[in-house]
Nucleic acid binder design. Structure first.
Lengths: 186, 186
DNA sequence: GTCTATAGTTCGATAGAC
DNA sequence: GTCTATCGAACTATAGAC
């Protein structure tokens, strides 16, 4: 829900309805909406971190730089299937001005960047380009570009260069159904 | 204000205070908050489009592909000085699910992409990479990464590869002061 | 652990004066 | 054109029952 509507727009009522519980219980369980979003942001960043660490642990040490980047990119593409993770992070990354979420947002972003730089041993050029592609993918998800892709040649082109030749497979594996079904306004 | 807080978070009251007018007058002038954000999103996209068109009109026709990309990138870097434009667009791009703002968001994004592809004659690879870098810059703005950049070597690295050797000059030319001063919560 | 009911606040929009 | 005042809806959080 936060991935779809952001922090302010993701009401505890909509979250409760999606979870099939009462609004009061959502607040009571997490203490406040702020704590809930903080936990959701942390969880999303932890998930991306874990996925990257798993890929890196699979390295033998004699992969080329291109091969390391390819494998991390493939893992990121797989994350697209769960829209919520990447879109929640994207919303967190717009909260740099916030005294509570700003520090979490910057720490989360830099923590993952450090893993790519230090553990995956990617060069500054390669790492920044890797993150740039990731942010483009996030943006295309937020735009729901995959849904209109068939009508727009350039939309397809962007998805293709973001996700490679598996873009159709990846896109069709994910869905926004939960957020759509439970939210008032589609 | 919308660039800082997004559509839902940017209240008409905060907008009114920043503009030095009454909340009722904001709503009355634009009809509704929805119309106001729609106009703000259109204006931001129009501005980016106009900046790119101006750069392209300056082409003589015998620039290299790298040179065309360099000049467009420089123009985008200059846009960073006015945080509001790029951050408002970034928030618009998270509203793909919305029946009103979703079409506007996709049209705005693709309109600018078409200009880069067709008028600036950039290849699919170069254009998608150019947009990827742009989305990374937007994200770093949203994170307010420039403000902590001096403490974090990797934050500096990201800014540098996003904006080039002019990153300090560009960053210092912009400010979030307006949104900070007028909004309740900093 | 989970609910209903509701208090208290904030927000967008309207009414009406000047 | 612009304001003050205010209404009704939506939202977070709390109280209290089971």
């Amino acid at each position: 829900m936060f991935g779809e509507r952001g922090y302010v727009g993701g009401t505890t009522d909509a979250i409760a309805r999606a979870a099939g519980i009462s609004q009061a219980y959502v607040v009571r369980t997490f203490g406040s909406k702020e704590s809930l979003f903080f936990a959701a942001g942390q969880r999303a960043a932890d998930h991306v971190e874990a996925v990257f660490r798993e890929v890196i642990e699979g390295f033998t040490g004699d992969e080329s730089a291109d091969e390391r980047e390819r494998r991390l990119g493939e893992a990121y593409g797989a994350l697209v299937a769960d829209r919520g993770v990447l879109l929640t992070l994207m919303h967190l990354f717009t909260l740099g001005h916030d005294t509570v979420f700003g520090p979490l947002a910057r720490e989360s972003f830099l923590r993952i960047y450090e893993i790519v730089r230090d553990d995956a041993h990617m060069s500054p050029e390669a790492a920044s380009l890797f993150f740039a592609r990731g942010m483009l993918i996030n943006t295309l998800m937020g735009l729901r570009m995959p849904e209109v892709e068939s009508d727009q040649p350039y939309a397809h082109e962007l998805m293709f260069f973001g996700l490679g030749d598996k873009c159709h497979e990846i896109m069709e594996s994910g869905t926004y159904a939960l957020a759509d079904a439970e939210a008032g306004r589609v």
